[in-house]
């Protein structure tokens, strides 16, 4: 199996590093290569993708059936429970995918692959973070679209063109925020066991303490407050409104205990959260990547 090297192969003399290429070309080359690696991994280990679609799908079918006979008047405007649940499950899909964003990074830290990247003369070490964000954003959007397609087939509706745009923007903001959180955890926690534990603990409670499964009017006051402060709710309600054909930015989408919220309010909160989280983890990333 092992054979001696052919000595005819020339080993060129070391040469001076090229200084002529533009920083932008270098940057896009390294980001592209790092992103490509993540997608190659996904293509060869598609279980993440499949499980990420399968789980919400099961939620949709089982929960949809469980509450199919929900009493009239539980949901606003006589909405069917399946239709109500759809928005929640779409958001949950994107949220779960983004929450896992830190896992590949954590494994790279643990197995020393990150060191291989850090020894290389990257133009910017943000490339590593940007590649993760690009990857997880596309992954979660693809998964969410798969769920949306299935929900449409189940008769739970489909947003119009503007509605779809609104759904995607909302999901994008949520995914950015959650990805920031997960990447921060991936660098702050000591290992993947701890990261998985945190993901496990955060995932379902956030779902239950949101308006994904039931409206605020159905909840006890304290839970209603929690749901009205939960970032998932800020993503669910605009999407639910879009599914109901309401794509106005100013229309009220949620009667929170502290006041009425419009789509614009919700998107603003998500945007602030995304920017805030990335600002928050930046010093940590700088320290770990320098």
């Amino acid at each position: 199996m092992t054979s001696a090297p052919s000595l005819s192969a020339p080993v060129p003399r070391p040469e001076a590093p090229q200084a002529t290429r533009s920083a932008l070309a270098d940057l896009s080359q390294e980001i592209l290569a790092l992103t490509k690696r993540l997608f190659l991994q996904l293509a060869r280990r598609p279980s993440t993708l499949v499980a990420g679609v399968l789980q919400p799908l099961i939620w949709l079918v089982l929960f949809g059936a469980l509450f199919a006979k929900a009493p009239e008047g539980l949901l606003p405007d006589g909405m069917s429970y399946g239709r109500f649940l759809g928005a929640g499950v779409i958001v949950f899909t994107a949220f779960s995918a983004a929450l896992n964003a830190g896992l590949p990074v954590m494994f790279d830290r643990e197995f020393g692959f990150l060191n291989r990247l850090l020894v290389a003369p990257l133009r910017s070490r943000s490339s590593i973070v940007i590649a993760s964000v690009l990857y997880i954003t596309s992954l979660s959007l693809v998964q969410s679209l798969a769920i949306m397609g299935t929900a449409a087939l189940l008769g739970y509706g489909w947003p119009g063109t503007y509605g779809l745009l609104l759904v995607l923007i909302t999901l994008l903001l949520l995914v950015f925020a959650v990805t920031g959180l997960s990447l921060g955890l991936a660098f702050a926690l000591p290992g993947h066991i701890e990261l998985i534990a945190v993901i496990f603990v955060v995932n379902l409670p956030l779902l239950f303490a949101s308006t994904a499964l039931a409206p605020i009017s159905f909840m006890p006051a304290w839970l209603g407050w929690l749901a009205a402060l939960n970032p998932l709710t800020f993503a669910i309600e605009p999407i639910r409104a879009a599914y109901g054909g309401n794509v106005s930015l100013t229309a009220t989408v949620l009667e929170a205990p502290y006041g009425a919220l419009s789509t614009a309010h919700c998107l603003l909160v998500l945007a602030i959260l995304a920017v805030g989280l990335f600002l928050l983890i930046r010093p940590l990333l700088d320290r770990k990547l320098s």
């Binding site: 290569a33 692959f113 020894v119």
Partner: peptide
């Protein structure tokens, strides 16, 4: 510098060629 670390960090799911191509891109 070229650095060959002690604990060989390899992405098991990539082929050797893909790994070298990634490395090449990181060195631009």
């Amino acid at each position: 510098l070229g650095y060959v670390a002690q604990e060989v960090a390899i992405d098991k799911i990539l082929t050797g060629r893909e790994l070298l191509e990634l490395q090449g891109a990181l060195y631009h």
